[in-house]
Design a protein around this nucleic acid. Structure first.
Lengths: 124, 124
DNA sequence: CTCCTTAGTATACAAAGTGATAGTATAAAC
DNA sequence: GTTTATACTATCACTTTGTATACTAAGGAG
């Protein structure tokens, strides 16, 4: 599924799906979001997303890199240092990411007015 | 996992994730996209997305309904007739959906220069 | 020599998502 | 009585995602 984006032979494949495939991973949107303002090291990204495991962070980053949205810069030092930043193409996603965030924030603050549907956050 | 949107017990939960949770399903973006210009019946949506199974169409639609983005109108007739349309909240997603599509189309046209894939826009 | 660091990888396993197929309900048409 | 139509639901199997945990490399500190 990660192999090639946009190679589905069915003619209904469109940009909506393509974009969602690229940013739709569980953490990709947030990773991209964090990378918009600044370049970050692997560990820094991890601290910004306490719930993510190293494995997932690695994987999502690799996929993002594979899709040409994120650049990975390795410094051959010990201990290792790797920096992640948005590529030019990745930067073109910034407005979209921001819109994603804005809509989401608004959505969260409104919480389903009287649909009988429960979207409430319990005490936790 | 569909149970609750916005469980931001951890402070890193943000709008980006919330939005992605809502539209990130495999078919949700496309469903929403098809519903932007017009109300559609269950079967019509199915025809617009030949690859989707009834099961998935039903489920994605229910989740969208549960998230308050899609309205489901049932006509008590035989054979059954059910119409799906965007709710007011769903309409607020339209610009985002379009941006998703635009970015994706641009991405596809650059990533795959002439691989014979088809980027036809459904319902455009 | 052992321990510490960072950015991973390897392995095992659980959960979620997806697909194929078949079945249900009801009224009208035949 | 059987078939047709629509919008589902149920079941099973399989694939993808995600988690937890342990382990690696290589140089410096002690």
């Amino acid at each position: 599924m990660r192999a090639k984006i946009g190679q589905r032979n069915d003619h209904t494949f469109c940009g909506v799906e393509a974009t969602l495939e690229v940013i739709g991973g569980k953490w990709k949107g947030v990773i991209l979001y964090h990378l918009v303002p600044e370049t970050l090291r692997f560990g820094e990204l991890g601290k910004l997303m306490p719930k993510i495991t190293q494995r997932m962070l690695t994987r999502q980053l690799r996929e993002l890199e594979g899709d040409g949205l994120v650049h990975r810069k390795v410094y051959p030092v010990v201990p290792p240092r790797v920096e992640y930043s948005l590529t030019e193409r990745g930067r073109t996603l910034a407005p979209l990411i921001m819109q994603l965030k804005n809509w989401g924030d608004a959505y969260l603050s409104k919480e389903q007015p009287g649909t009988g549907f429960d979207t409430e956050t319990p005490g936790d």
